[in-house]
Design a protein around this nucleic acid. Structure first.
Lengths: 345, 345
DNA sequence: TTTATTTGCTTAAACGTTTACCTAAATTTG
DNA sequence: CAAATTTAGGTAAACGTTTAAGCAAATAAA
């Protein structure tokens, strides 16, 4: 339309005919092969440009047995963590001129398994993933890895698969957060977490427990409450029950949407944050600073984690001398102290 | 590993050999062709399952000249709108057993154009997109459409392309929001928006102006301020300047991250929301209700928009009798009133 | 000058499907 | 019972690349 060309498919055959050379010459010229003379190369490139030739990726993938495509396998895009991580991943995918297929597991093992089955077709050259929280049988992952598809985990890693893992220091962050609450005078801290229990939440729970243990405080079962992994009124109700029963003076919320749950539960119970109860939450949302009160958060390096994971995968894919199984990277999270944990005057 | 099979590629040839039939028989049997007898079909399906046969998508795409893949072209995944929209899209992509490639334009026309060039290879069967805000020359979109690739716009639509468009009522929502502020007693309302000006922001501005005009209030140039489209301290500073100069008693923030910008600017200026200045923001974040004060928002049907866009695209792709160019759907946003626009007692 | 090497290109097979067309046997029709 | 049709499959080409192998001409080496 904007140019003179019709929408007839122009492929290598077309170019070959126009330039009166063989298809092989076209292919090699475009890939800058040493086989082709400089002037021919130029002529090929020029006519390719003129005729708006765009290579067919599927023919290429079929023949080369590689797709220039990676998979991003994550539970969902509901929170800011994965949004930011995807942006980090994309920043590299873009540079490498790859494509990214997105697979959302909805945190379900069954779906994750199906998706791995799909990927066993050679659809992707590599995988960046955060495992579903109820994935225990990891044979689908092992199978694909054995089949030669490199995998890099980020955030929710699978410890039993020998490959690169990009984590943040969940144990330590929770430890820091809990210690911070203790420093601020809390004596009875509850952990609000979610069902299904991905390993990172386990680490957070352990960091929490360690901080308590260090100060000789017993972490009794009752101080832990599990919510469903999406924002619901049921969660608010459950948390209210919990608070009324346990009467905690501090709360660690382990995932983003639990911040809202916690704040609303406290509000409904007429509990003042931070006077009656102090709150820390794992979240990356910029609104943390304008909450009522501003929320003390554990800020995770989401973008950097996605980016680093992608970097490692591409280092491997592009044949750099790197052993994925040796890469075990921990990027630190940051405790950002705000008023939700302030000691009242 | 978990099964007896090695990682040797099993393809139709393998199955054909094992079952002593032709490759064509395998192919037809697996696609449930009428050509093949029921018992043969069963045998094929059974051995395919046994040998863990997974069809090669690239061979199939090459031959069929269609990829079972769609593109999601969006500016970024930075805010909750696009996160939720993607989830809506995925809910349909999943059902249809398609795949979704994600293209982030970073709101840049140049990148968008490159991506369309990439897609002109036949890589995708259809496109779901929100156009970049600085896209004015739309020939890249036209070209692809003319080449037969169906496109469905959502949110940031391109009016000049005759195809399906899923929007929300930006004009009306902004009108409602502004009227609401006026009802709450505001006399001097500023519009905080972003540079680059996608069409939806234009609509929001016009809704804002209409509400003012209706009450015979002049919307002077100075009441509009443009920020960069990411959360920065510069934006906060600029907004502070603006507020000090114009002294608005009401603010409409047109995109999500401007809520934080606005709240922080007001805080730094020691302005009380809502007593000194009332605020409404276009955002889907659940934290709106726990802000200080809770934020009156325009809640957009992000998930539904993504879902509906995908539905229309697939209706078209699966040959349903539907004319994309006739589909112009507007899903309503909702004004959720909270304390940031409350009239002081 | 003869031989070896390099340059620049071509031929043809391969990647794994799908499908138009063909065929032989089985079944139905008149 | 012959002719027509249906059933159940096979053959081979095609989709658009990439690449191993080959080859003639030009250049370099001996």
């Amino acid at each position: 339309m904007t140019d003179g060309s019709k929408s007839n498919k122009v492929n290598m055959k077309t170019l070959a005919k126009v330039l009166n050379v063989s298809i092989a010459t076209i292919s090699k010229a475009l890939r800058d092969s040493h086989d082709i003379g400089d002037d021919t190369k130029q002529r090929v490139i020029e006519t390719a440009r003129l005729l708006h030739y765009v290579p067919n990726p599927y023919a290429s993938s079929l023949r080369k047995r590689s797709s220039n495509t990676i998979a991003i396998v994550i539970p969902e895009i509901a929170d800011s963590f994965f949004s930011q991580a995807i942006n980090g991943i994309e920043s590299i995918v873009d540079i490498e001129k790859y494509h990214a297929l997105i697979y959302l597991t909805h945190d379900s093992y069954e779906r994750e398994k199906q998706m791995f089955n799909d990927m066993s077709s050679g659809r992707v050259d590599g995988i960046l993933m955060s495992v579903a929280s109820n994935t225990e049988d990891i044979s689908h992952i092992q199978d694909l890895q054995q089949a030669g598809v490199p995998i890099v985990f980020f955030d929710r890693v699978c410890e039993d698969i020998p490959t690169a893992k990009i984590k943040t220091d969940d144990f330590n962050s929770a430890y820091m957060a809990t210690s911070h609450l203790l420093d601020q005078g809390c004596k009875n801290i509850s952990l609000v977490t979610i069902e299904g229990y991905p390993s990172i939440l386990q680490a957070r729970e352990e960091g929490y427990k360690k901080a308590l243990a260090e100060r000789n405080i017993e972490a009794n079962e009752g101080n832990s409450i599990s919510c469903s992994n999406k924002y619901t009124n049921e969660n608010i109700a459950a948390l209210k029950d919990h608070i009324q029963k346990i009467k905690p003076d501090g709360i660690i919320a382990t995932v983003e949407h639990l911040a809202t749950t916690t704040y609303l539960a406290c509000e409904e119970l007429k509990l003042n944050i931070p006077d009656d109860i102090k709150v820390v939450c794992f979240t990356n949302q910029i609104t943390a600073s304008i909450l009522n009160p501003p929320l003390t958060t554990i800020l995770q390096p989401a973008y950097e984690m996605g980016r680093k994971a992608a970097e490692l995968l591409f280092d491997h894919l592009t044949g750099k001398p790197i052993q994925l199984e040796k890469e075990n990277i921990v990027l630190p999270s940051k405790l950002v102290v705000r008023n939700s944990t302030r000691i009242p005057d």
